[in-house]
Design a protein around this nucleic acid. Structure first.
Lengths: 356, 356
DNA sequence: CTGAAAGCGCTTACAG
DNA sequence: CTGAAAGCGCTTACAG
């Protein structure tokens, strides 16, 4: 009494009505909370009559289980994180869609982290910015090294995607990059091309994808008995259209420009295509073009794009399946590296044939 | 006893070591849990010396707060959901990226729901499949009606995106569709075109976007004194490239084909472009083409695509800002409809000029 | 098949 | 500035 606040009786704000809990449902239905919990979670040992009564009460009160409480009690959240560089890079957008779908089949919800490929953000992800919120992580790093990952103190189950990190610190789903790049290059050579260029080389340590695809490219040249010409290998800073466009321009300025180009991804190829058409070159008559990823844009451009198509659905499924195994603790010791199929999809940018 | 399971004593699995909690940190640091909590949450009233000791203990034990417990206690999760039809439709991928970024500035994490535009899934989203997990929802519905949304019993704060639902049941961020479509059509007419077609009409109730953009198209014709020709309006089942390609083919088969086409989104335009080039028509010389959305694909095709560019960053910012206001309870009564700017980006598909 | 009760790990009045 | 304790809403042994 006499306290300054005494004049303001603690009056519940309109939003303050208490949330409906299990207890309220139990009271209305005239059963114990255990029974309500059993009904909510679909357990068997409840008589149909009791179940019906509980369900009526749930509907009447519009009860929804509080997931924070459930998670706290169960010790898991049912949420996994997907960390990718950018959501609007078509390859990652397609992958994200498939992973969300695959996760749903396991009753899991996906939360998305965009790292922008920045080392700092990737370290945060690896160290578990959201580790107490998520049960597992599917991670496609761009800047992190295997050492970074080996040093991580967070023990949230993790599955890696992409070429960046091999040999081990975590389960890993990949495609056979060397073989796929070799196939694509051999296809160009089989068309009779002799000056086959490559766009997408990268010097820095981040360029593991580049390294593998370049190896495949070189293996194809070697197998075909063609010389390797350093001048036909165009390095890029990143794997966007603009980089491909610029690289193609440089190749066209060579004394002896290429008659075919294998681009290390589709965005590079689409950028290169743009430069070729802009400068009045016919594709594939003068320059044949192949990419990697099979993103949807390549299927509808003019010409349509020949490309290596990794089985993205399978990548998503395997990634989620591996993660689920890790999370449940049923995974065997040691990490696994799973190789997913790919196929070469031949379209107009190498054959000139129209889509029927 | 005698039960078959009696032979297997309940032995804690190696993974079962208890999680490090506030209590453990408090014990190691020699302070109360309250103090640790204060340090973790960055509150002021802790002496530097105590703070340092706590921080050392946190590091030593590699302590991470349990978010489920925090959320349970605080009554919120810091997670918002973004529900869109598909993540790999470029427009939604771009929007998702921007919304994730905007949410991050408010310390919020985004969880993504893909509805596939299915009515059933959209109803689940509206009714709060994850309502106890999320603090708010940014929703771009395709099948739901205003009535569906008015009837929802879930009271999770929600912000709507897209043209589907106007007038009211929730806060809403949109662009001026009619005005924008009119501008795009007038631009085509200003080029001297007289048979301007439209691709993207839809009969069904879902076609609110279609209705508005068609209205803008008609308004432009009227303003320019051109007749409205029903035959030049091509309906589509969906807004994908394939629909645009098919619609364009039908328009080209007319006795008097169009000399310009306004497509109600960029994917339709890219599909239409494909048909035009495939059939040997010059763009824009024979047929000029404009789209809507300004997705990245349109910036790099050949020719590049003239399009209405909504300010997507602003859409994302406004959507998150509105939602945050609702969640904090500071929003005024009544729902708001926020119009975001757009501009017409003129590129080669109407002017034929090359990008410098 | 059902009930009463403990406890998941936090935050936050309430006292000091 | 710090401590002891209640309670968020669940799930789940433990009894019956």
């Amino acid at each position: 009494m006499g306290e300054p606040t005494a004049a303001t009786p603690p009056e519940p704000s309109p939003d303050d009505r208490r949330r409906v809990g299990l207890k309220d449902v139990a009271r209305l239905a005239g059963v114990s909370v255990k029974t309500v919990s059993n009904v909510v979670n679909g357990y068997v040992h409840v008589t149909p009559k009791t179940r019906a009564r509980v369900e009526r009460a749930i509907k009447e009160l519009n009860y929804r289980p509080n997931l924070s409480a459930r998670n706290l009690r169960r010790g898991r959240s049912g949420i996994i994180a997907l960390a990718v560089p950018e959501l609007d890079i078509p390859y990652f957008a397609e992958l994200a869609r498939l992973i969300v779908a695959a996760a749903e089949e396991h009753g899991l919800t996906v939360l998305i982290d965009q790292t922008g490929g920045s080392r700092h953000r990737e370290q945060q992800v690896a160290e578990g910015i959201r580790d107490q919120l998520i049960d597992g992580l599917i991670f496609s790093p761009l800047a992190l090294t295997a050492d970074d990952l080996s040093a991580r103190t967070d023990d949230t189950p993790m599955v890696l995607l992409g070429e960046r990190i091999h040999n081990g610190p975590a389960d890993h789903v990949v495609v056979h990059n060397v073989a796929a790049a070799k196939e694509a290059t051999l296809h160009l050579i089989a068309l009779g091309r002799r000056r086959v260029a490559a766009i997408g080389a990268q010097d820095d340590a981040a360029g593991e994808t580049a390294r593998l695809r370049l190896a495949g490219y070189r293996a194809a040249l070697a197998e075909a008995g063609l010389p390797f010409d350093e001048g036909l290998v165009a390095p890029v800073a990143a794997y966007h259209r603009a980089d491909g466009a610029a690289a193609m321009a440089r190749l066209l300025d060579l004394a002896e420009p290429p008659d075919a180009v294998f681009c290390f991804n589709d965005l590079l190829a689409l950028g290169a295509l743009r430069t070729l058409l802009e400068r009045g070159h016919e594709v594939p008559a003068e320059v044949a073009l192949a990419g990697f990823d099979d993103i949807e844009d390549g299927r509808y451009g003019t010409p349509t794009l020949t490309t290596v198509s990794p089985d993205k659905r399978e990548i998503a499924r395997q990634a989620v399946a591996l993660l689920v195994e890790r999370m449940s603790g049923t995974a065997r010791r040691g990490t696994r590296e799973i190789y997913v199929d790919h196929r070469l999809v031949i379209r107009e940018s190498t054959t000139g044939r129209k889509i029927p």
